[in-house]
Simulated scan of single mutants.
Amino acid sequence: MNISGPSTPVRKLTPAEAQTSFKVALNDALHKVNEAQHASTLATSQLARGENIDLHQVMITAQKASISLQATIEVRNKVVEAYQEVMRMQV
C-alpha cells in the first residue's frame, strides 16, 4: 500500500527564480518580525497610558516579539557564517 500518494515532479528553479523566491521569503519574514515589534510597542504604550489592556496580553506580545527577533538574529548569524565559510574556500 502506497501511503505517499501520487508524486508530482518537482520543478527546478533557475538561479534568478531562486534568488527572487529567497528575497520574497526573507522580506516577508522580516516584515512579520517588524509587525511583532510594533505590536509589542503599541501594547506596552497602551499599558503605560493606563488603557484597558490585559497585562498578560502585553507580556505575551512582548515575548513573541523578543523571540522572533532572537530567531532572526540567529538566522542572520548563520547566513553570515556560511558566507564567510564560502569565502574561505580555495578555488
Rank of each mutant, 00 (worst) to 15 (best):
S45R: 14
V10D: 06
V80D: 10
E51Q: 15
L30M: 13
R88M: 10
T8F: 05
F22Y: 10
Q37W: 03
I67Q: 07
I67M: 09
Q70P: 00
N27D: 08
L13C: 05
Q57R: 15
P15T: 01
E17N: 02
A62K: 03
A36I: 11
K32S: 15
L30P: 05
S68Q: 11
I3D: 12
V10H: 06
L26I: 02
A18T: 01
R76Y: 13
K12R: 07
K23Y: 08
Q70Y: 03
Q37N: 09
K78Y: 06
S68N: 11
I3G: 10
L26K: 03
A48G: 02
V86W: 04
E85T: 13
R88K: 15
H31I: 12
I3R: 12
Q63C: 14
Q57S: 15
E17A: 01
L69S: 02
R76K: 07
A36G: 10
Q46V: 00
L13I: 04
A18D: 00
A25W: 02
S66A: 02
E81N: 14
M89E: 13
R76Q: 10
A36P: 06
T72N: 01
P9L: 06
H31G: 09
T72S: 09
G5N: 02
A43Q: 02
S68E: 09
K78H: 13
N77R: 14
T14L: 04
Q70L: 01
P9S: 06
H56E: 13
E74Q: 11
Q57L: 14
A65T: 00
S68T: 07
N34A: 04
S68W: 03
V86I: 12
S7N: 05
L69D: 01
E35Q: 12
G5K: 07
Q37R: 13
Y83R: 13
A65R: 00
E35T: 11
M87Y: 08
V75Q: 06
N2Q: 11
I60N: 12
L55Q: 12
R76S: 05
L13W: 00
R11H: 10
V91Q: 10
Q46D: 04
Q19Y: 00
L47C: 01
I60D: 14
K32F: 10
S45F: 08
A18K: 01
S21N: 08
